[in-house]
Amino acid sequence: MVELTPLLWSLLALGALIVGLSKTALPGGSTLAVALFAAVLPARTSTAALLVLLIVGDALALLMYRRHADWKTLLRLAPAVAGGLLVGVAFLALADDDGVRRTIGAILLLVVAFTFWLRRRTAAAPPLGAGGRAAAIGYGTLGGFTTMVANAGGPVMSMYFLASRFEVKAFLGTAAWFFAIVNIAKLPFAIGLGLLTTQTLLIDLVLVPAVIVGGLAGRLLADRMNQAVFERVVYLLTIVAAVYLLL
Rank of each mutant, 00 (worst) to 15 (best):
V2M: 11
S10E: 06
L11A: 10
L14D: 08
G15S: 05
G15Q: 02
G15A: 09
A16K: 03
L17I: 06
L17M: 10
I18T: 03
V19R: 04
L21I: 04
A25N: 04
L26Y: 15
P27V: 12
G28F: 01
G29L: 06
A35P: 04
P42Q: 07
A43E: 12
A43G: 07
R44M: 12
T45K: 05
S46K: 03
L51A: 03
I55N: 00
G57R: 00
M64Q: 13
R66T: 08
A69V: 09
D70N: 12
W71K: 04
W71Q: 08
L74F: 08
L77Q: 03
L77I: 06
A78T: 11
A78I: 04
P79F: 00
V81G: 01
G83A: 00
V87R: 03
G88W: 00
G88I: 00
V89K: 15
A93R: 15
L94Q: 14
D98V: 15
T103W: 14
I104T: 02
I104G: 01
G105I: 02
G105P: 01
I107V: 09
I107C: 10
L108E: 06
V112H: 02
F114W: 14
F114S: 10
F116Y: 15
F116Q: 11
W117H: 11
R119V: 12
R120H: 12
R121K: 13
R121W: 15
T122P: 04
T122A: 15
A123Y: 07
A124K: 05
A125D: 13
A125E: 11
P127A: 04
G131I: 06
G132E: 14
G132T: 08
G132V: 08
G132M: 07
A134C: 10
A135C: 09
A135M: 10
G138Y: 10
G140K: 00
G140Y: 00
G143L: 03
F145D: 01
M148W: 11
A150Q: 06
A150Y: 11
A150R: 02
G154M: 05
F161N: 00
L162C: 03
L162Q: 02
L162Y: 04
A163V: 09
V168K: 14
V168G: 07
K169L: 14
A170M: 13
A170Y: 14
L172Q: 08
A176L: 05
F179E: 03
V182Y: 02
I184D: 10
K186A: 07
P188K: 07
A190E: 02
I191F: 15
G192R: 04
L195V: 05
T198Y: 15
Q199L: 12
T200L: 06
D204I: 09
D204N: 14
V206P: 08
V206R: 13
L207K: 03
L207M: 09
V208G: 05
P209F: 12
P209C: 12
V213E: 07
L220G: 11
A222N: 03
D223Y: 14
D223S: 15
N226S: 10
V229L: 09
F230W: 05
E231M: 11
E231W: 12
V234F: 08
Y235V: 05
L236V: 15
L236S: 14
V240N: 09
V240Q: 09
V240P: 08
V243E: 12
Y244A: 09
L245T: 04
L246V: 12
L246R: 07
L247D: 11
L247I: 11
